[in-house]
Simulated assay, not measured.
Amino acid sequence: MKISDFWDRMDETFGAGYARSVAADHTLGQLGGRTIDQALADGENAKAVWMAVCRAWPERVPARLVR
C-alpha cells in the first residue's frame, strides 16, 4: 500500500482534519504502543499500520476498506 493510499483511507474513515489527530495522538497496542505517526516514521509497512487501524476502530472503518 502506498502511503498516499493509507492517508486517503484515514481521511475517508475519520475525516480529513481528524485523521491527522488520530494518527498523532492515539497509541495502538497493535503497533507496540506507538502512535500511527510513530509507526510510519519507524518504517512500519503502511498496510500493516492500516490493518492495525482497522482492528482498533472496526466500527469506523468502512467494510470495503478493510483489506
Results as ranks from 00 to 15, higher is better:
8 D>W: 11
8 D>L: 14
54 C>L: 04
27 T>F: 01
9 R>V: 09
48 A>E: 09
44 E>T: 02
54 C>H: 06
47 K>T: 07
21 S>A: 10
64 R>C: 07
25 D>H: 13
15 G>M: 03
44 E>W: 11
25 D>L: 14
43 G>N: 05
8 D>M: 13
53 V>H: 02
23 A>V: 11
47 K>G: 02
27 T>M: 09
3 I>L: 12
6 F>H: 05
8 D>K: 12
60 R>F: 08
53 V>R: 03
67 R>C: 10
25 D>Q: 15
50 W>I: 13
6 F>Y: 15
59 E>L: 01
46 A>G: 00
59 E>D: 14
30 Q>S: 14
53 V>A: 03
54 C>V: 15
58 P>M: 05
66 V>P: 01
65 L>G: 01
9 R>S: 08
48 A>K: 13
49 V>M: 04
31 L>T: 05
42 D>I: 08
7 W>T: 04
54 C>R: 00
8 D>P: 01
25 D>W: 04
66 V>C: 12
2 K>L: 10
62 P>I: 05
4 S>E: 15
66 V>E: 11
4 S>W: 00
65 L>H: 00
57 W>P: 05
10 M>L: 09
10 M>W: 01
9 R>Q: 09
51 M>S: 14
4 S>R: 15
43 G>L: 06
9 R>Y: 07
18 Y>C: 08
60 R>K: 07
48 A>C: 04
64 R>F: 10
57 W>T: 00
62 P>V: 03
12 E>H: 10
27 T>N: 03
50 W>Y: 03
55 R>L: 12
17 G>T: 15
50 W>A: 00
31 L>V: 02
21 S>Y: 11
54 C>T: 10
6 F>E: 13
49 V>R: 02
20 R>D: 13
24 A>M: 11
6 F>W: 09
24 A>K: 13
37 D>V: 02
52 A>I: 04
52 A>E: 08
18 Y>Q: 14
44 E>V: 08
23 A>I: 13
54 C>M: 03
28 L>F: 04
63 A>H: 06
9 R>P: 04
7 W>S: 11
29 G>D: 13
12 E>D: 08
61 V>E: 06
45 N>P: 02
19 A>G: 06
21 S>D: 15
38 Q>I: 01
47 K>D: 15
9 R>K: 15
40 L>M: 11
48 A>I: 05
29 G>N: 07
12 E>N: 09
40 L>W: 06
55 R>I: 02
52 A>K: 08
10 M>K: 06
15 G>A: 10
4 S>P: 05
3 I>V: 12
13 T>S: 10
